[in-house]
């Protein structure tokens, strides 16, 4: 009994403070959580608009598409259909993720309406090395994905970055990050493409 008393004598301030601080964080979190989520949504939409300039609104086309991301894990993503002002489908967008050099890389991938060519990718969140790996956010690397075919992409160490083909030239000094982006794109693109064809969202084409 004395021990319990001693314990509280010593640590009552700690306990009280913990509760108060916990409450403080909870209040802050409750107050701002909506905005934080909204920010993430905005970022996604901005990236989509940047890649598909015609896009005006977007609607969820397929929810909770399971994608196998290797090692038996699956990740769910929802595919959004980008619509132009007059209601035409101008492309598809979905988030995808995979491990990068330092941390998880989260990307937005956009594809044209026929699911034949990539419109590009945008980085939602990443934690790559500044000056090297974070060049995956640079136009130099991102532009290589614009108009690339929706087939398997190959990472090259040397080559012509201006040519729009399935060959992506790696960022020098950041092979791992470059590879991560290509792997994420390959993993999600193929599976989502076949998924879309199954659901009849796009023609099974050629």
């Amino acid at each position: 009994m004395d021990k319990v008393k001693y314990f509280f004598q010593q640590s009552w301030l700690l306990i009280v403070a913990s509760f108060c601080f916990g409450l403080l964080i909870a209040v802050a979190n409750a107050g701002w959580q909506g905005r934080i989520l909204q920010n993430e949504e905005d970022k996604f939409n901005n990236l989509v608009v940047e890649m598909i300039p015609d896009a005006n609104t977007s609607e969820v086309a397929l929810e909770n598409v399971e994608v196998e991301s290797g090692k038996g894990k699956t990740r769910a993503t929802s595919i959004r259909k980008a619509l132009s002002a007059d209601g035409q489908c101008v492309g598809w967008a979905f988030t995808c993720e995979g491990s990068g050099f330092a941390d998880k890389i989260k990307l937005v991938l956009t594809v044209d309406a026929g699911f034949e060519k990539l419109k590009g990718y945008g980085v939602l969140s990443s934690n790559e090395t500044p000056g090297f790996g974070d060049k995956i956010k640079d136009q130099f690397y991102r532009n290589q994905f614009v108009d690339a075919p929706t087939t398997e992409l190959v990472l090259m160490k040397l080559g012509a970055p201006d040519v729009k083909d399935a060959e992506i030239v790696a960022i020098s000094g950041a092979t791992v990050s470059s590879e991560a982006v290509v792997t994420i794109v390959n993993t999600f693109l193929g599976q989502i493409k076949s998924h879309m064809q199954e659901k009849g969202q796009i023609g099974d084409g050629n």
């Binding site: 403070a17 601080f21 964080i25 802050a28 701002w32 905005r35 934080i36 993430e40 970022k43």
Partner: peptide, 30 residues
């Protein structure tokens, strides 16, 4: 403050306000 628990209290206090600052930035300066 109890002398031997003071560092714990400092860290607790600092961590709280850092979390709040972090949340604030995420909400208003994404």
């Amino acid at each position: 403050l109890r002398p031997h628990l003071r560092i714990l209290m400092f860290t607790l206090t600092i961590a709280t306000f850092v979390t709040i600052a972090d949340l604030f930035l995420k909400a208003f300066q994404p």
